[in-house]
């Protein structure tokens, strides 16, 4: 049972034909979408997956990338070296040294799992994509070529607005805030001590001044008493003289 057709509006005959002509004419006046690639480089989106770059200084030959690669297109060779003891009487350490690191880009499917899985930030995406070869064997990029791609790796794009703060920045910020708080507390204590010291000094100065005043008052009183005593003696002497 077919659904009933929607009510059709009365149409002007030929309006469909005119609509078709209008569409093509409008498209003609618009800007074309052709990418003139070899002449004009494309504007690639951020995080473009062009080629995988190796920052071999960070590589510890943990082999995680080679093991996680779904295409088995990463080749790693290495050997162990013994590092002599750093302190006298200490133990010798062993260290992995990278001999070969190669990615076969004729097998790679650009999934990016190796980059995702690398715990030491030794693999990066580079947006470079122009490395076509006429011989498929040339598509296996050896260690030095992978290292060269490192120079084309762009700086990480800015986070989205409202994104969670990166963990390392959060940790650094927390440490900085703690330090700041501690310094502020010390400064406050120092200031309080200074104030207390000043208050003490002021109090001592006041006491000294009061003591001085008391001493002067005492002296004045004694002088007065002496004068009165002298006057009394004089009066007595005059009285004695009259008698």
């Amino acid at each position: 049972m077919a659904a009933p057709l929607p009510p059709s509006r009365p149409r002007i005959p030929g309006s469909g034909l005119a609509k078709g002509l209008a569409v093509t004419l409008r498209t003609m006046t618009k800007k074309t979408v052709t990418a003139q690639y070899p002449d004009v480089q494309p504007e690639l989106p951020p995080r473009s997956r062009g080629v995988i770059a190796l920052f071999e200084e960070n590589c510890t030959v943990c082999m995680l990338c080679a093991r996680e690669c779904p295409d088995w297109c990463i080749y790693i060779d290495s050997h162990k070296e013994t590092v002599p003891a750093a302190t006298p009487g200490g133990r010798e350490r062993s260290r992995n040294v990278l001999d070969r690191f190669a990615i076969d880009f004729s097998l790679c499917m650009y999934c990016g799992i190796c980059i995702e899985v690398c715990p030491f930030d030794a693999l990066f995406w580079s947006p470079e994509f122009e490395y076509a070869e006429t011989d498929i064997l040339e598509l296996t990029h050896e260690r030095d070529k992978l290292r060269e791609w490192m120079w084309t790796v762009p700086e990480p794009p800015a986070l989205d607005p409202g994104a969670e703060e990166p963990k390392e920045i959060a940790a650094a910020r927390k440490t900085a805030e703690k330090l700041e708080a501690q310094r502020a507390k010390e400064a406050q204590e120092a200031q309080q001590a200074e104030e207390a010291r000043q208050a003490e000094e002021a109090r001592q100065a006041e006491e000294a001044r009061q003591a001085e005043e008391a001493r002067q008052a005492e002296e004045a009183r004694q002088a007065e008493e002496a004068r009165q005593a002298r006057e009394t003696q004089q009066v007595q002497r005059e009285e004695e003289g009259e008698e």
């Binding site: 093509t24 498209t27 003139q36």
Partner: peptide, 13 residues
């Protein structure tokens, strides 16, 4: 040229 631009292309360049 006209056909190319009517289809959003550039045509021969």
């Amino acid at each position: 040229k006209v056909m190319a631009h009517m289809q959003g292309r550039l045509g021969p360049m």
